[in-house]
Simulated scan of single mutants.
Amino acid sequence: MPTSALPDHEDLMQRIARDLIDSYDEELELEIEDRNIDGLDPASSTPTSADKAARQAYFKELFRLQGELVKLQDWVQHSKQKVVILFEGRDAAGKGGVIKRITQRLNPRVARVAALPAPNDRERTQWYFQRYAAHLPAAGEMVLFDRSWYNRAGVERVMGFCTDEEYEEFFRTVPEFEKMLVRSGIKLIKYWFSITDDEQHMRFLGRIHDPLKQWKLSPMDLESRRRWEEYTKAKEIMLERTHIPEAPWWVVQAVDKKKARLNCISHLLGQMPYQEVAHPPVELPARVRHDDYLRQPVPANMIVPEIY
């Protein structure tokens, strides 16, 4: 990015401050929004009344959508649906953030996340899709892939981790693989999170400045930043060659993280004809008590010190 296109230092620090606050858990954001972040301009992290109003509106809509996700979960479990959702995008595009907000209120036994590491030596000798197929859902389950088999069309292609023959074989196979999944009764939804060059630059700087997120910056991430254009070309080819009627791609505009989360969740809910499942009222049973029961004291050396 040309030097002239970079924001000045004060503006950059303000954007990083806002991004750091936005990245914290939704349950904590309202409590910490008035606090300053060490090392940044205190004025930059003080929210205005407009900021607070926008944040409250965001939370209100997020919680409403999460309530609908609970209904979706119940419907998936009750009607024995099988759902696979793929989340793809550049590093720091916000995939993990939206996955977190989707699963935040759900039962991890029903809605689980598959975030596979790099293949080991044995997996490299398997059929390419084999290790992903092992994570596909049974009836009544939703699986959210934080990156997926499309690694071959992206990072493996750009970084040279696959041959030209393997790359072409992937494109020959993936449409048939996905059609087979759909024919088997799996609902397959594919999202690409789209951010700009400038936005990824800012988010990487934010990770550098945030000690709680520095672990997210791997050497591979830094190299991907250098190869922005190569990733762009790989993405364009991937979307063109794998956008099929049975499993189309959906592009989420993700420069604004909060809007991206809400838009993605809202769209996801619209992809399935879920209905609220009626549940019988829950009644708490009376505790059984026995006269001969005596609770034994816990030894003092087993107690966690109460320092808070």
Rank of each mutant, 00 (worst) to 15 (best):
S184H: 10
R261T: 05
Y24K: 13
S218E: 08
L69I: 11
D34P: 03
E229G: 04
Y167F: 15
E29Q: 15
A133D: 05
E199K: 05
Y24N: 11
R122L: 12
R109P: 01
V98H: 04
S148D: 09
A57E: 12
I303V: 14
D38L: 13
E166R: 07
L69G: 00
A234H: 08
L188E: 06
E199T: 10
Q77T: 09
G67N: 13
K52S: 07
Q81I: 01
I99A: 01
E141C: 00
K80Q: 14
I186L: 15
D164P: 01
L65G: 01
K233L: 13
G97Y: 07
F63G: 01
V83D: 02
E246I: 08
D221M: 06
Q130P: 02
E156A: 02
E33Y: 14
F161Q: 05
A278T: 15
T232S: 11
P108E: 08
K190A: 00
D291T: 15
K259I: 03
H267S: 03
K71S: 10
Y58C: 02
T3L: 14
L116A: 02
Q104K: 15
R203L: 04
Q81R: 14
L222R: 10
W215F: 15
K233Q: 14
L116W: 05
N120G: 12
I208H: 08
R18F: 12
V84Q: 04
D22L: 12
K100P: 06
R287P: 02
A57G: 14
A118V: 13
A54R: 11
L72I: 07
W250D: 04
E165G: 02
D197T: 06
V158A: 09
D51E: 10
A114F: 03
R147S: 08
V252Y: 06
I21E: 06
P2S: 12
I99T: 08
L86N: 02
A300L: 08
Q271P: 02
P245V: 05
M302K: 14
Y167H: 15
R90T: 03
L212W: 05
E29K: 12
L106M: 10
D51R: 06
